[in-house]
Design a protein around this nucleic acid. Structure first.
Lengths: 349, 349
DNA sequence: GACTCCATTGCACACGTGTGCATAACGATA
DNA sequence: TATCGTTATGCACACGTGTGCAATGGAGTC
């Protein structure tokens, strides 16, 4: 059995209230008593019971984090940022992955509610509206990251996907590309739409109307989805000279798919990613991509949540807050000038 | 304020004990009353307080997971496995990353002790012995994954690194390589030693004595560490024809480093990884590596912990258990026959 | 010496849940 | 009718901590 403040009280000959106050640094207790109690506590290996404390104070010092999958370099970058900020502030993290499964989502929400999580960070773009409402109904402070339905939540951190996508499109046009394709991930909702919008806007303002078949959606954002799309683009009557991929994973798959088909990147086709996951720097050729500040996004989300918790006396009055972070274009080796016409011929032999 | 069993009791006109029993499925309560209470509970949106329950029952239904970093595709694969198994069994996960920082480790351990975590899974190979003892002293059931100091803990899941490394070395020798290097990660302790041992054993049994400079250690296991090591090997008077890397991340960095230096893989140098992280299939060339069953390792660890918790009446009597899982060799494109002598010359021009 | 004031500590209750024991109701049996 | 057994429910306490309020005691003031 773990030692309690009563045990300490018995040993030091004071009441348990005195121990409680001494350990929490209450200045009412005389410094000599306080010191004596502190010493005994360490000696006896005392560890406060979070359960008892949370029961009494109605605060758990725990933050729930919901994501699709841990095994995704984009999300794990964000979580690392959340974790760093949370540890500094003395919070622990409940982390659970929904794996796009509604039943799991329900279980996760239930578990977080039972544990009276002080707040929740949702970085699963596809998190269902129903479960979100469930949390909101129970007054949980929620911060969402890159969620598709921003109107449902009052506090959110977003990456400016529209802007980022524009940066990439501008870069490709500046290189001289006209036949630019966009490969999306239909599962990611708002995110892929914004990125598509950025792409379309810039092309239009440059007087380019992409062929309808240049816009292709996959239901998933993994390397395998990118790989299989390479064939799709290569089989088009007039293949694109540049392919903007929804994210780095798909771009890496695309890279491999093109190369396996004997197509050279970037000589024959340029490929770009999105996110700047750690390995995107080490592909061959290194991936031109947009650096999303993942750790910063995580930290900002946690910081916003901490602000909410600190001032929760004026809970209802708080005005909604939506923070938008911009990324920066990283020009590496997977993008270059489009091939000259005779090169383009080569592609079809 | 959240609704409690007392609220339900008041509304249904019974005592709170009856409500407690009804909701926990106690057969003493008549089925009509039980049904009525259940209905009211759902209606009122009741969610049991985990804090109160855990205070009373001395079980938290929470498992602590300690790792170095979330942002590592090897560990996140394992955590995904742990998470899946935990959710099925009704456990929630406390996850925290130490980032190789002793102060953080201490905070993590303290937090887990305060929350009376039912058990702890350590998948940080470098987790300090002192903190481990701290947990053991407080009777926490602990399962370690791939930890370097197995003797300190009674329950552990290991990947057979010795065997895996042997498989790779045999493969390279079968291809005809003699000048085989091993690139290690000194931070990973036991793991890198075992892999080195496998390498050395097979080479010795094949009558090969590697040059001392072929064995090179980096303090870190990321792509950057692999990248910078490429130069080291290329500058040797007699460079190796095959490089076994500690893990996939380093191998991917190595791939890039060699290619940036104008060296062709696998024509001039073969490169192998370890772990089979998701992206290793999509490098150019695709990486020959050893598939560690990451999700299985995670599941096995969680399952072992569940076994410990289920039978904790005979806590002390439990005999130590050490489960070893073997990986399988994946031969892809980064390994091939060594270059013929005149090729080798080319390397030094 | 009686009084006030302040510093220090203890008492008692609360948080929400689980559970051993007593109690109540009721039918069956003698 | 008295007794017993069974079934269903309530009472009361416990888990470990925090906190408002009362109590104690000593020093200082008139």
């Amino acid at each position: 059995m773990a030692t309690t403040i009563k045990d300490i009280a018995k040993k030091t000959g004071v009441s348990h209230s005195t121990v409680s106050r001494a350990l929490s640094g209450n200045s009412l207790i005389s410094s000599v008593t306080s010191e004596r109690i502190r010493k005994a506590a360490i000696e006896m290996g005392y560890q406060a019971s979070a359960a008892a404390r949370s029961l009494k104070t109605n605060r758990s010092n725990v933050i729930g984090v919901i994501l699709n999958s841990m095994d995704d370099p984009f999300f794990s970058g964000i979580v690392d940022g959340i974790d760093a900020c949370a540890q500094e502030a003395g919070y622990s993290l409940f982390i659970a992955a929904s794996q796009y499964d509604l039943k799991r989502e329900k279980n996760i929400v239930k578990s977080m509610m039972e544990h009276r999580t002080d707040g929740v960070i949702i970085c699963s773009s596809s998190f269902s509206a129903e479960q979100g409402r469930q949390l909101l109904r129970n007054q949980f402070p929620i911060v969402v990251i890159n969620h598709q339905a921003s109107q449902n939540f009052h506090y959110s951190i977003y990456h400016d996907d529209f802007d980022g996508s524009q940066q990439i499109a501008r870069h490709l046009i500046a290189l001289g590309h006209c036949k630019i394709a966009y490969l999306g991930n239909s599962l990611s909702g708002r995110t892929t739409i914004e990125r598509f919008n950025g792409y379309e806007t810039i092309l239009k303002s440059a007087g380019i109307t992409p062929l309808p078949e240049y816009v292709h959606q996959q239901s998933g954002g993994y390397a395998a989805n990118g790989y299989s799309s390479a064939e799709y683009y290569l089989n088009l009557p007039m293949p694109p000279t540049a392919i903007m991929c929804f994210n780095d994973l798909m771009a890496i798959g695309m890279l491999k798919g093109l190369q396996d088909a004997g197509v050279q990147v970037p000589t024959q086709v340029s490929v770009t990613g999105f996110d700047n996951i750690p390995l995107s720097e080490y592909t061959n050729p290194a991936l031109t991509t947009l650096d999303q500040p993942k750790r910063s996004i995580g930290r900002e989300a946690m910081q916003l949540l901490l602000d909410l918790l600190g001032n929760n006396e004026n809970n209802g009055i708080f005005e909604p807050k939506k923070k938008v972070l911009k990324g920066t274009l990283l020009i590496r080796q997977s993008s270059s000038v489009p091939p000259t016409p005779n090169h383009r011929q080569n592609l079809h032999e």
